[in-house]
Structures are given as structure tokens and as C-alpha cells.
Design a protein around this nucleic acid. Sequence first.
RNA 1: GACCCCAUCGUCUAGCUUGGUUUAGGACAUCGCCCUUUCACGGCGACGGCGCCGGUUCAAAUCCGGCUGGGGUCGCCA
Length: 430
Amino acid sequence: MVKVRFAPSPTGYLHIGGARTCLFNWLYVRRLGGKFVLRIEDTDIERSKKEFLDEILESIKWLGLDWDEIHYQSQRFQLYHDYAQKLIDEGKAYKKEGAVFFKYQFSEIKIDDLVRGKIVFTELPKPEEVIIKSDNSPTYNFSCVVDDYLMGINCVIRGEDHISNTPKQILMYKALGFKIPQFAHLPLILSAAGGRLSKRFGATSIREYRDDGYLAEALLNYLLLLGWSPGDNREIISLEEAKKIFDIKKVNKTGAAFSVDKLNWVNSEYIKSKSITDLAKIAAGYLRSKNFLPPDVDTRYIERVVELFKERISKLSDLMAWARFCFYDDYAYGEDAKKVLEKNLNRQVQVLMERFSSMDSFDKDTIEKEFRDVARSLSLKARDLVHPVRVSLTGEKVGPGLFETIEVLGKKRVLKRLERLCKYWAGSKE
RNA sequence: GACCCCAUCGUCUAGCUUGGUUUAGGACAUCGCCCUUUCACGGCGACGGCGCCGGUUCAAAUCCGGCUGGGGUCGCCA
């Protein structure tokens, strides 16, 4: 049975690269029906923090991934000591200055990597390596080898930054008499500038993307595309589908630059594919977490607003930027938008308000019919009335279709806002 | 510096394993046109690439070598 592991260190949040490694491990093992081990590498007592651990676990769950086993290295120190002692007893390691040093018995190392093929190491930078620090905690390479063996990990899928650790670990496997697992080194995710992905180039933690209104499925889908493709030009692939067709041998060797533009596109595709009710539920949860919604707003209204914006947002946070007028009356006319109000149409808008007032059914088709009729009767082009009215109702000169907007806002609100527009005109010198 | 990895449009990629079916396909971004009350969406189109040199071959994006460029690692961090 195939067994893989994802081994984050709780010294920081789950970042883009870690999430991708986690995803590829998960896809690989779920397709083969094996076991997925989550191993928390919290051997660095100083830097490991509970908040990071919680954050990592929460992010993995949010993404929709799961694990079969979870282990904490901080609870396994005795095991590492036992194996270190074994090496000492066999003369393969020795104590010095309170630490245990492992002596490499170097010979040319060949790795047959699942994604990169053959990799050959002809030398090692150092003749020995600390495996147990003087504070009794194990070093990464050692605990990693002991645990991968003890946990039955037979395929190690990790980032390319670990390639140079691999020969060291293989030498430890050999010294310990452990069977060497298969390796698959994933290409790194680079920043848009092509360099290392770091805070300087924008968001790196999964949490930030969640906060920014990205959907878990979309982020996962985008990550899936970074270094892998199904080969048939499809780009929108659900996790379920990916589980069936993911092939680690088709993973690219080249580092991939992270593109927010493309992520936005994938996210907008997922948003558009959701039903109004589902999307409204997600959006409401998101907006509430941001304290954006007024406390008394009802579900049906949120659904209508979501419907209004569904086609034009690429992430949920766009709603906060663009749909504020749907929930609050206290917006000001944008500086740019005021230009649309230069011509005083006070009288014409009064006529429109009278017409709206007398309407029984306030649906968008009727609204449009009446609106155009009023414009015609006043010898105005519809667009001459449309633009000022939009600014009046939304504060901005761009936005969703006007008639739909009017319907969603409702007659009462619309009349109030048009009233405000007339006051604006009355107050400004002609 | 040493060791290792990588190299197709600006970006993500298909094609490369098994050389000819490729005037190198798709997507994002950009630009244009259409749709249209605006912005989006959608439709159509444009722009744009096999890093360089050499070799093998009748034939190379595909195989080989070198160069150049990019990346990673060299911690009692993981």
C-alpha cells in the first residue's frame, strides 16, 4: 500500500508552496487508495507555535483536504535518541559537545526521482552532520529519515528545495538499514517576478487568500495547474476529477511563477459556476466574517445582490468594494461620477419618480419599459437618464445593469435616493 | 565558490518518452471589433514563443554536447 506524508513545520502559516505539496501528495495517494500521513515537524521548540499549527490544520481543512494519520515529532524524541544510540553503538555516529554527529559513508548516490528521473550526486559538502542537537532535539534530516521509516512512508513527495537533502538522507537510511523510499521532487512555485516566493511579492499564506475572498476549490484548482496539466487543454478541474486523473509522472520540472491574474480568472469561473443560493451562502459567510453586512439583512436580499454581481466579481472581496450601496445609504458620489451629474435634470427625474411611485409591480422588465417611456416623453435618450440615475443609486458611474439594480434595491430605496439626487441638484449652482 | 536542478508566447502550459502528422495548440494578461444604459460577462479576432552554438539525421521544439540564463542547497532551521 502506498503511504505518503505531508510534513509542515509549525513555524509559520501554511503557504502557497506547502499547500501545493500537500495537494499533490493527497491527489497521488487518494488516486491509489493509500494512506496520507500528516506529520507535524515541531522539533524546533523555540520557533514552533501553537497558533501556526492551528492555522496550518485549519487551512488544510478549508482547502478540502484530509489526512488518515497525524503525528507530532515533539512527542517522538525518544525514538530519535534510540536510533541515534544505535548508530553510536555501531560506530557510525559519535557524541561531541553534547550533540550526536553522524559520519557519512559517502559513495556516489543515484536517485530515481518520480518527476525528474535520474539525479546523481558525486560528492557531499560535509563529512559529518549533527543528528541530535545539544538540547536533545533531533535535526531535520535525521528525524525525517527515522519517521519516514517508522511510519511506513514509501513515497516522499516534497519540494525541489529538498533535493540536496536527499543524498544525506539516503546515507542515513543505509546506515540505519532502512529501505529507501521513492522520491518525487516538485518544482518550486516562484513569484511573478520569477524569484523566490516571499512576502515582498504579495500574499503567500493560504489564510490571506481565504481572507481575500478566494474560494477553496478555485485556489486548489489553480495550484493544481502550477506544474501539472491534464494534457487536454482543460483548466477547470474539480478536486474529484483531479483525484481520478492526477499523474505524478506528468508533473513539470520547471519552476512555475504564481500569477494572481490567472488565479482571479479561475476564481471567477468557480464563482460563475455556482448556483445563486450556494454562492449567496458562501458570500454571506464571508461578508459576515468581515463585519460587512448590516445585522438585519435578510438572506433573500443577499441572494439578489449576489445575483446582481455574480458575473462581474472575481473574488468575494469585490463585493465589499462594489456592492456597498446595496447595504448602506451613506455613500458619497464619486469624484469621477459627479461629472455625469453636471447637467441638471431635476425636473425630468421628478417625472421619473412620479412614474415609479405609481407602479404596482416593480420588476425589472416593467421598470425598463416605464423608464424608457418616461425618457421618450421627455425627449431624452434613455442613456441620458440612465447614467445620472445610476450615480444617484450607486454613487458610481459603472456597475450592474441599471434596471436590475433598481429592482433589487426596491422602490422605497430608489425613490429616497432619487430624492437625494434632486436635492444635490438644487444645492449646486447651475 | 561548491554541489544539484531547470530551460516552448510576458505568465501557466500542450507537444518532447517512441524525431517527420506543427505554417508549434490552448489558457491568463494585453489590444481591437461585436453585444450593450456603463463596467463586466459572452462572441470573434490580433499580438506573441521552441535561449544560443555545434553535432547526429534525408528530417530536431523533440536525441547528444557545450555555452548562456534562471532556480535550489550548502544552519546544533525545517
